[in-house]
């Protein structure tokens, strides 16, 4: 089975600078159609093809705008209260007991 990697973009932390879109070696990032709450046009993942290289993560000036998960299949599942669905979740790095929803990036546990 092909390894599935994902680039997660925190829409409201993105300032739409476009550096990640320019840097992505496989061109899987693009600008969104809509605007975010700051009025910027955020980047978004076209949905497939991410190699998990991390280039966009290191190009992005914002601390939390981009998260890259290599091999999403390896993540645990949990119920996300925001999406109201069972989803893949990833652990934070300041407090491992805090996990975040891969779909909406919000904290899953209270």
């Amino acid at each position: 089975m092909a390894i599935i990697n994902r680039v997660l973009i925190h829409v409201d932390d993105c300032k739409g600078c476009g550096l990640c879109i320019d840097a992505c070696p496989v061109n899987v990032l693009d600008f969104s159609d809509g605007l975010n709450s700051m009025g910027y046009r955020p980047a978004h993942y076209i949905g497939e093809g991410c190699t998990g290289c991390g280039t966009c993560f290191y190009t992005c000036p914002e601390p939390r705008a981009i998260t890259v998960v290599r091999n999403v299949e390896g993540l645990a599942k949990d119920h996300c209260p925001h999406c109201n669905a069972t989803v893949k979740v990833f652990p934070g790095n300041r407090d491992e007991s805090k996990t975040f929803c891969v779909e909406c990036l919000k904290p899953v546990n209270k």
Partner: peptide, 26 residues
């Protein structure tokens, strides 16, 4: 393959409360 995650480094605060305002994560 192991799952690895590139995310906001832990040496940054969770929220930038000293910055104030509505956008505490950027």
């Amino acid at each position: 393959m192991k799952t690895t995650i590139l995310q906001k480094p832990a040496s940054f605060y969770d929220e930038f409360t000293q910055k104030g305002g509505a956008q505490l994560a950027n």
